[in-house]
Simulated scan of single mutants.
Amino acid sequence: MDDDHTEAFIADIIPHLLDDHGKQVIVLSHVKRITERLRELNAARGHKVFHYDSYTRGGPAITEQVALRKLLTEIKGAARGNEENRAYAVDRIRVLTEHFIRELHLHVMGVPVPSPQYDRATASVLYPLFQGITGTTPTEVAGLRDTVQFCDPAHHTQVGYAVPTLPNIKPHINRLEGLMIKYGLI
């Protein structure tokens, strides 16, 4: 489908089938923005997202997708690696922060972050939204600001920048994991 028909299907047809007819809807897609849009629009409904983990002779291994948990696990592994892996971990912390703010906004506020101005927003642009989410504390706000600054790609190209070591990365991983646990996102 083209973009207009896809959006109409996601925003109009699926809710109509779910709400007006009590149907279960299964959508198969390899396009990430479609699955993310489906998650955003159906946050208040009971929904699950699955992905194929691997293919074996007996068929695919299908597991429930918990994007934040999966990304967190990936970051933890990369942070223990060599310099290249640690640089990757710092970048993924930025991505995790972006996903976390979006998911938390949806979870607590009941609506996705405003579109289209935040569709491709970075962690530093999304950060002010975190400040406005009901229930966030000044300590959490200050801590997340520190994490956003830590993983900001702008300072990674400065002369003298050294890729952080695990002890420097770990507090940011722990902070994000603690927030995700507190708010029930993992």
Rank of each mutant, 00 (worst) to 15 (best):
L126N: 03
T165K: 14
L129I: 11
G132C: 02
G178P: 07
Y118T: 05
S115N: 05
T136C: 08
V163W: 08
F130S: 03
T134G: 10
T73Y: 11
L176Q: 10
H155Y: 15
T165C: 09
H107W: 11
T134Y: 11
T136D: 05
H155L: 14
L104C: 02
Q149M: 13
G178Q: 13
P171C: 00
N174V: 10
A162Q: 15
L129T: 05
A87V: 06
H156D: 13
H99V: 08
E177W: 07
R120E: 14
R86I: 03
T73N: 13
L96W: 00
G81W: 02
V95A: 08
T97D: 00
R92M: 00
A121P: 06
T122S: 13
F130L: 09
L176F: 03
E74L: 10
I133D: 04
I101N: 00
H172L: 06
G77T: 09
V113C: 07
R145A: 14
V111A: 14
P116D: 06
E140A: 09
I101G: 01
E140S: 11
G110F: 14
L104H: 09
H105A: 05
T165I: 11
V163N: 08
N168V: 10
R120G: 12
A162E: 15
I93S: 04
H99G: 02
L144R: 00
N168S: 13
P138A: 07
E140G: 09
R102L: 02
G143R: 04
H107L: 12
R175T: 01
P153S: 12
D119P: 01
S115Y: 11
A162R: 15
T122L: 11
Q149L: 14
V111D: 12
N82I: 04
T73K: 13
H156T: 15
G135W: 12
F130A: 05
A162G: 13
V159Q: 15
S115A: 10
S115D: 04
T97M: 04
Q158A: 15
G143I: 02
H105N: 12
L104M: 06
N168H: 13
E83H: 03
R145W: 07
V108Q: 13
L166D: 07
R94S: 10
I101P: 01
R80T: 05
V108E: 12
V148R: 07
